[in-house]
Each structure stands twice: as structure tokens, then as C-alpha cells.
Amino acid sequence: MLAALLSGLVLPAVADQGASGAAAQVVSRERSISEWLLRMHEASRRRAYIGTLVVSSGGSMASARVWHVCDGEQQMERVESLTGTPRSTFRRNDEVVTFSPLSRVAVAEKREALGLFPHLLKTVDAAIEQHYSASPQGSERVAGFEADIVQLTPRDSLRFGYRIWSEKRTGLVVKLQTLDDQGRVLEQVAFSELQLDAPVSMDKLSRMMGNTEGYKVESPALVKTTPAAEGWRLVQEVPGFRAMSCYRRPTASGVDAVQWAFSDGLASVSVFIEAYDPRHHGQEGLQALGATHALVRRVMAGGTSWWLTLVGEVPAQTLQAFSQGLERTR
């Protein structure tokens, strides 16, 4: 969710600012959900800002200081945790380095590209419109800025909804809520303080990101693979979700796990598959923290015991559907 807010949203413009609210809504509704979402994604490439983010989820709260700058196709961020364990994260496009001052460890890895809903551009437009609708919800002030509100409503029970506040002038997202099927807020991320068009130096952030002196640098080895090569397939697809990537990655037990990632363009699900080891794997079950659900279970397939971990900002039944659709092919 934090990565989702570190981006921008441009709402459809109303040519006549004196138009009535009803007329403005008519103009807004002329845009498709795909057009709204593409505007959200593109706006993340245009803004430089400094701000303080507050995340509320599952009764807990955390905050972080954020620096963000763009230079053509290159984006950089610095995120400093203000609560909990001290941690500094630097990100340049898909390159990420996380510094842990207490342990003196820096973890360098690759992650999804920056932006709101990073899988959006890999998803067929019509598929998104089949599963979500968009509607304007008026405006409010957030962090001292007037913001337009848009709500993305799912058309089925396999995904959550979103309510997004975007600063009127720039389109930067200043607040985002994830909603359950009753419209209740599961998770919220919002700026409590924000400086737009801030003088953020990309060169300075690059130097800080590369300064690992005094830190043990760890680089988890990710190996690109395919489900077929690993001996797995999804016999029953989950409506709207498409496979995005598949990697082998190391685990704490020392045995590689397969990570198979899916997205419907907005929501994402990761499926982790590894050989079952009673020394490292505990109790099966479902856990939830705000909008994030995690399902862990042991399964028998191909004469071998496997440990499945499914994680995503989706309802529990979506994870169940993925779990039940997996099949061993060898």
C-alpha cells in the first residue's frame, strides 16, 4: 500500500470550472475506468515532493518520511521509517536498497517498478473494466491541499475497492483507502504533511543509496523461471487475475521457494511454493492485517508434501481460490 500511494492520480478535468457538481460528474463519467487508471499511473512520473506518510492498518499505525523525484524515465525515492525499527529504503526504478542501522545490514534487490498499481500497463484494458467501476465522490482537503475523490468499486467479491484523494492542481495522490464489500476502511495511507515540487536532488539520493560503507550487503538471488518448469499449473483460473512473473528465491530455511505473482491490474497476489519442512513450517491457517491476507497450508502433490503461502491485498476467498486451483504436474 505504501508503494501505491507514492504515485500520482490525474482526475478528468472539467473545462468550465463554474459548471455544477452534477454536470462535472457527467463529464467525469464519460471517461472509462481504463482512462482513469492510466492517468493515475502516468502522473506518478511527473511529481517531486517531500512528505510524511501515516499508515493505519488493523488497529496499528506507522509513519515514514518520503522524498520522491523524477527525471525523465528515472524515478528515485527515499523512505525513512519514523516508527518501529529504524530503516531507510532507497529505490531507483526497480532497484531497491534497504539499510537496517541496528544490524548494519543492507539488502539490495529488485522489485516492481514504481507507480500506482504497477501491473496496470500489463493488463488488458477490457479485463479491468469487467471487474471494477469508477465514480467521482466530490472533494476534501488533505494535508492542506484541496483534493478530488474517486472511488473504484469491484464488480465481484474477489477484490477490494479503493477510495483515492488526488490533489487538484497536480493530480498527486494524497490519501488512499482500501475498502471491504461493505465500504468499511480496511487500510488507509495518507500524507499528514506535504511539500509539492520540492527541491529533491536525484544525485544526492543516488550517492546515499550507493554508500554501503560499514554495512554487510546482502543480495537475494532471484532466478526467473516458469510454473511449467517448476512443475506447477493453475487448473482453475481466478477471474480477472493474470500471471505477471515467476521466480525462484531463497528462504530462511535455506531451500528455494517458487514465487508466482498474479494481478488484475489493481490488486496483486503472490503464491509461494516450497518443500514442506516441519523444522521451519508451523501451523496452517489464515491471517489478516488490514487489507492484507495471508493463507498458509500444507498440501500433498506428486507424492511430496508442499508448503503454500499466499499473500495479497485481496479477500480471503480469493486466496482460497488460488490455493484450490494449484496442481502439481510431475
Score class of each variant (00 low, 15 high):
125 D>W: 12
109 E>V: 01
167 E>K: 05
130 Q>S: 09
95 E>V: 03
99 F>T: 06
184 R>W: 01
190 A>S: 13
160 F>H: 13
173 V>T: 14
109 E>S: 06
189 V>F: 11
102 L>D: 10
162 Y>W: 01
122 K>H: 14
123 T>V: 13
125 D>E: 15
115 G>V: 02
179 L>K: 12
164 I>P: 02
158 L>H: 04
155 R>D: 00
144 G>C: 09
139 S>G: 05
159 R>M: 02
108 A>S: 14
194 L>H: 03
194 L>P: 12
90 F>G: 03
112 E>Q: 15
95 E>F: 03
115 G>Y: 10
112 E>T: 14
140 E>S: 05
166 S>P: 04
193 E>N: 10
120 L>W: 15
156 D>P: 15
133 S>T: 15
146 E>N: 07
171 G>S: 05
92 R>P: 10
89 T>M: 11
143 A>D: 04
135 S>I: 00
90 F>A: 02
160 F>W: 11
98 T>R: 05
135 S>Q: 11
149 I>N: 03
157 S>W: 09
142 V>S: 07
141 R>S: 07
190 A>I: 00
89 T>S: 03
158 L>A: 03
116 L>M: 10
195 Q>H: 09
191 F>A: 00
136 P>C: 08
121 L>H: 10
149 I>R: 04
121 L>W: 09
182 Q>W: 07
171 G>L: 03
108 A>I: 09
155 R>N: 11
170 T>D: 07
197 D>N: 07
189 V>A: 15
118 P>G: 11
115 G>Q: 09
128 I>H: 01
109 E>I: 01
165 W>T: 06
138 G>E: 12
189 V>D: 00
120 L>N: 08
148 D>A: 14
132 Y>H: 06
124 V>T: 12
147 A>C: 15
168 K>C: 09
175 K>T: 03
147 A>H: 08
134 A>P: 08
94 D>S: 15
95 E>Y: 06
172 L>V: 14
163 R>E: 00
172 L>M: 13
107 V>F: 02
126 A>C: 08
89 T>K: 07
165 W>S: 09
